[in-house]
């Protein structure tokens, strides 16, 4: 048995992680429930559920529906607001030796900025993940993430409020994901998360109406993984920022797809719902891969070499 400690540490635009395995925002709450299953200190980071300036009510029910190898959700970013996060959730999370990445949500640019100001005042985060998939109420509810200029505006506003790493979480619901990625890089993002859920819907054929009360929901789970991997591949080639890959990861092999496509770290999302130990299984599988294949950091983006090698052969 090889007991050699494997170095999985990685730096994400200033955020030093002991390992590259995180849990995706919205699939892990604020850690309390999963702490009943394992020590959160084993994770590289916890991306907490989206935090807004004031409490958000969320959507009416039904909020979810199962789909082939996936699920749709339209929770509506229900959360108890930044003050509740700082008072109730942060002290709990701080007990664990892991990084806390606060997912920030807002309906205006100002709201994003004010959430970050509040958290900065209490040093309540190690990094920020900006969820630009929120509806922009000033622009009639279209998502910040679907327009490079709006996305950049949010990133800039947050950037000016903190020196901690700022991660933009990209929406996949765009024609060209590299446009928004480049805009976020220029606006000062330190890293990018990709991807958020895919806009989708399901219809109840018997009742002849949409299943979700919100009509549309976000598709997640193994069904989206190949599209998410493609987007990581594209963005890796377009920008010079560390990427956090997510979208349907259930195993270490799934995670390795993202890493080889160019992700410096990965996040386990929907799999947390069906296997509480999914993130730990991904971590031990990556450790195993590093033992067999060599240093972690050299694996990042290595699948791109294939194309270079092929062009040399040609």
């Amino acid at each position: 048995m090889d007991h050699e400690v494997v170095d999985l540490s990685v730096n994400l635009g200033g955020l030093a992680l002991k390992n590259p395995v995180m849990v995706a925002s919205g699939t892990f709450g604020y850690g309390k429930e999963f702490a009943e299953f394992f020590d959160l200190g084993r994770l590289g980071a916890v991306m907490v559920k989206g935090v807004s300036l004031v409490p958000w009510e969320g959507n009416p029910l039904p909020r979810i529906v199962e789909t082939p190898a996936g699920m749709l959700n339209a929770i509506g970013l229900q959360n108890a607001g930044v003050d509740h996060y700082l008072k109730e959730d942060l002290p709990f999370l701080r007990q664990f030796d892991t990084r806390i990445i606060v997912n920030v949500i807002g309906k205006t640019v100002e709201e994003y900025a004010r959430v970050v100001e509040r958290i900065e005042a209490q040093e309540g985060a190690d990094a920020y993940e900006i969820n630009i998939s929120c509806p922009n109420i000033k622009e009639g509810g279209i998502s910040f993430g679907s327009d490079p200029a709006l996305a950049a505006e949010v990133v800039k506003a947050v950037r000016s409020r903190t020196r901690r790493p700022v991660i933009a979480k990209l929406s996949p619901n765009v024609t060209d994901v590299t446009e928004v990625a480049i805009a976020c890089q220029l606006a000062g993002a330190d890293a990018l998360s990709l991807v958020n859920t895919f806009l989708a819907m399901a219809i109840d054929v018997d009742r002849e109406r949409p299943v979700l009360a919100n009509v549309f929901g976000g598709l997640s789970g193994p069904a989206i993984r190949p599209i998410a991997v493609r987007m990581v591949w594209e963005v890796y080639r377009a920008v010079d920022l560390p990427l956090i890959g997510m979208g349907g990861i259930t195993s270490a092999r799934d995670a390795l797809e993202f890493i080889l496509a160019g992700a410096s770290a990965v996040a386990v999302g929907t799999a947390n719902f069906t296997n509480p130990y999914a993130s730990l299984e991904v971590l031990s599988g990556i450790q195993e891969a590093v033992r067999r294949r060599g240093p972690y950091r050299e694996m990042i983006g290595r699948a791109h070499r294939w194309q270079k090698e092929r062009s040399i052969d040609d």
């Binding site: 892990f28 709450g29 999963f34 909020r63 979810i64 929770i75």
Partner: peptide, 26 residues
């Protein structure tokens, strides 16, 4: 009973309104 995704309290799919201290919450 409500439709659940995680069953452990993190996904907020299976919420129902309750009254507490004069206010409603999920």
């Amino acid at each position: 009973e409500e439709w659940m995704a995680c069953g452990i309290g993190v996904c907020l799919s299976c919420v129902t309104k309750v009254q507490e201290g004069g206010a409603n919450r999920w």
